[in-house]
Amino acid sequence: MGRIVRAISKDASVVCSAIDGKDIVCEIERVHQSSAVVTAALGRLAMGTSLMGFGMKGEDDRVTVKIDGGGPAGQLIAVADSYGNVKADVMQPVVELPPNSIGKLDVAGAVGVDGAITVIKDLGLKEPYVGQVPLVSGEIAEDITAYLAQSEQVPSVTALGVLINPDLTVKNAGGFLIQVLPFASDEIITQIEQNIAKMQSVTKLMEDGRTTDEIALMALDGLEPNVLDDFKVDYRCDCSRERTERVLISLGEQELNDIIKDGDVDIKCHFCGKHYSFTPDEVRKLLEESKK
């Protein structure tokens, strides 16, 4: 199970949420049987989405982040609730690419840079909020930062990392999201910039034994920060047979009749891999109930 720690500066003008997402990314690799570079890409997106969702006001609020950069991995998607629990999916889980110019996994090469990041927030209103901005790097963290600045006018810093072992297992994974409120002074912003410049990558910090709360406090060093929250987060899919039934009903009468003719139907959840099977009689019953 993962962990999110949220720290706040003394004057409450800056908040930093940091995540230990190793278990979340391990589950992504298990569910999707993804190659190393896709595990890294989808892991970064899942952790970034978790940080964005964590702390939303409504218990049933949800945030969905989609990235479609035209790369060989295809579209990546992650969905998080207000507790930071997250699920994720990718169109092409296996992509093999040589290392990038600095010898790291080529996440941008797998994701692509010719596209957009789309954020959908379901806040219990009549219509969800939808924002979209062009990708700036395909490295995920920079794209989330750009989205927050351009679409939500929230100055922020996002850092995300996934370290893969030679045997393709996940060594560590984590990240942080710093958000600056409008009343923050120039001195505070300068302090944050200096802190970020001094910090090593998240994966290196975790490899050196730094804990999630230490990373959050390090990012806000000099601002007299305090830990505000400390929560467990998980890779969690909320699919169920009832939800799957509603999806079938939404297909409409004609398509349900075609399904009945084809015999048994098996539906697989793309987020967790669970299978839901329906006999023609069960589909017929759903069709009859939908007419009532």
Rank of each mutant, 00 (worst) to 15 (best):
E245W: 08
G161H: 02
N100M: 05
I249S: 10
R6K: 14
V63G: 07
E214P: 06
N100L: 02
N195Q: 07
E282R: 11
K204I: 04
V162E: 09
S185E: 10
T244E: 06
M199C: 05
D20M: 04
S151I: 08
I215M: 09
K261M: 02
S137H: 06
I164W: 03
G112D: 03
S101A: 15
I77F: 05
L76R: 10
S50F: 09
K104S: 07
D81A: 02
L148R: 15
V90Y: 08
R3N: 13
K57I: 14
D281N: 09
A116P: 01
V5C: 15
R6A: 08
I192K: 06
I19S: 01
C26D: 12
K87L: 03
S34N: 03
K268W: 03
T169Q: 05
D213Y: 06
I117A: 04
T64E: 05
E245D: 12
N257A: 01
P166K: 02
R210M: 12
N172L: 00
G115Y: 04
K268E: 14
D81W: 05
G43P: 11
I117S: 03
K126T: 02
K274V: 00
D230Q: 07
S250R: 15
T211K: 01
G222H: 11
Q150R: 14
D266H: 12
I8V: 05
K57V: 15
I117V: 08
F231D: 13
E59T: 15
E142T: 01
A149H: 15
I4F: 07
S250M: 08
I267E: 04
D230T: 02
G174S: 02
L256W: 06
I4A: 06
V90N: 04
K57Q: 15
R210A: 15
Q75A: 13
